[in-house]
Design a protein around this nucleic acid. Structure first.
Lengths: 251, 251
DNA sequence: ATACATTTAAATGTCTGACATTTTAAATGC
DNA sequence: GCATTTAAAATGTCAGACATTTAAATGTAT
């Protein structure tokens, strides 16, 4: 592992890259211990602080973990789905909010991805998954549930749908898409009537999965997408109108 | 922004979290300047080195960028798709390689996600996307192409299929799934006959998209999945057999 | 001999202060 | 008025010290 002496980028970034490359390429394997900070400082001919900054970069990406004390140090971390989920969701949420992604586009992506899971879920759904879906449907029917809680339950329902496919790679890839929608969904006011409609569609989906009927599930999901889009567009229209009103009031 | 004095986790991790939360919650907006390192050190009552380690963590996640010089500092970064792609691919690749994901599972996820895009791609594909697909198909037919280049072209073809849907969120979400398969695909030796079969299927997909025929594209994609799975299983079987042979030879 | 307590050494975590480098705005000189 | 120089503010890097944590090694009493 070496760094380019002509490169004038931050040393800590270069060192992080060198170590990251070694991990990604398989040169360093899971649970392998990195040299101590002092040794790394020697090897790269930099100060310990610079090495530490590099290691913190890698720690932020969950590529390494550190342990204090004797026989401690930095170790190559086994990237778990759980850790990856969190980052995935944070990144997806920021991408949506920072790049002005419209409700339509986000909604389309989310339902397209969920439809990819539906046939697999219909085939493989366990009793456990069905129970989760039923429980969330029940919660969604409770009177007095806040809009935010309704949204959270909605996310839980859809995650169950995705997890039902029994493919961890799919679950990981979709975590971001499903959860990143939540801030957008939270802007929606769910009236009693719209909740009723959503619960009915959720029930149809759960029923279809229970019967192992992929086509019926697909159809209900399509209707749910159309309905969600409808709700979202109302919100966006009102929001744009409010912004315009404010604009004209100022003039 | 404050940190919990009772928390005994690393201060730099706590500070990074506090700032990250401020960014994710929208408390700090894109291009807003953070206080200087010295000011942050004062605010959090820690040393400058600790603040720097926190900032390096955030920089590793592309949440901030730093600029040297007067009127420089750390600024909230607009997370671009390009940056996010890179991390997405790295993470997905590591998840697959570190968690012993089987070829079957990865393959299933990839094609399920691509099928989610196909109807949209059939509807919206531009002439540009079609041209890219045709060019990659042509390259794949060239004699003397290395297996690795064939794989790279295969990835390019599938990315065009995904990008054809014209939904940046989908493109982002699928980048990881498609690209992370490449190391696994690279273990396959593509014979002349298997290349011919793949090129034929790619051509069918491109033709179907050109005709805006989602069902035909879907069907060809299904066949491609089955064929890829078949090739992959051969490789895995041979690899396992070789490992067993080696094992018994040692005994 | 075993169980428990103590010591010790190695590592990361934190702090301080200094200097180098980069960059921009302001001051200066022509 | 324009070009040049200077100053200031910020990040980047270094060196050295001390604090804290942890597990192994050692010692001690039953």
């Amino acid at each position: 592992m070496k760094i380019d002496p002509d490169n004038k980028a931050d040393l800590s970034a270069q060192i992080a890259k060198a170590i990251r490359d070694a991990i990604v390429s398989g040169d360093m394997i899971v649970d392998q211990r990195l040299p101590s900070e002092a040794e790394l400082a020697d090897q790269f001919a930099v100060s310990r602080s610079t090495v530490r900054e590099a290691l913190k970069r890698l720690a932020a990406q969950s590529l390494i973990r550190t342990q204090r004390g004797a026989f401690g140090g930095a170790f190559v971390n086994r990237l778990s789905y759980q850790e990856a989920y969190g980052d995935q969701i944070t990144t997806a949420t920021l991408l949506l909010s920072m790049n002005g992604i419209s409700f339509d586009v986000a909604c389309e992506a989310r339902y397209a991805l969920e439809r990819a899971c539906t046939p697999l879920s219909a085939e493989r759904r366990t009793a456990d998954i069905l129970a989760t879906m039923r429980a969330e449907i029940h919660r969604q029917g409770q009177p007095g549930l806040s809009d935010e809680s309704f949204c959270a339950s909605d996310v839980a329902f859809h995650r169950a749908l995705v997890d039902g496919a029994g493919n961890p790679v799919l679950s990981y890839q979709l975590a971001g898409a499903v959860e990143a929608m939540q801030p957008l969904m939270n802007m929606i006011t769910f009236t009693a009537r719209s909740r009723e409609a959503i619960v009915a569609l959720h029930t149809r989906i759960a029923d279809a999965l229970e019967r192992r009927a992929p086509d019926a599930a697909q159809e209900a999901l399509h209707e749910l997408e159309a309905y969600t889009l409808h709700l979202g567009r109302d919100v966006m229209a009102n929001r744009d109108k409010a912004a315009l009103d404010k604009e004209s009031a100022r003039a």
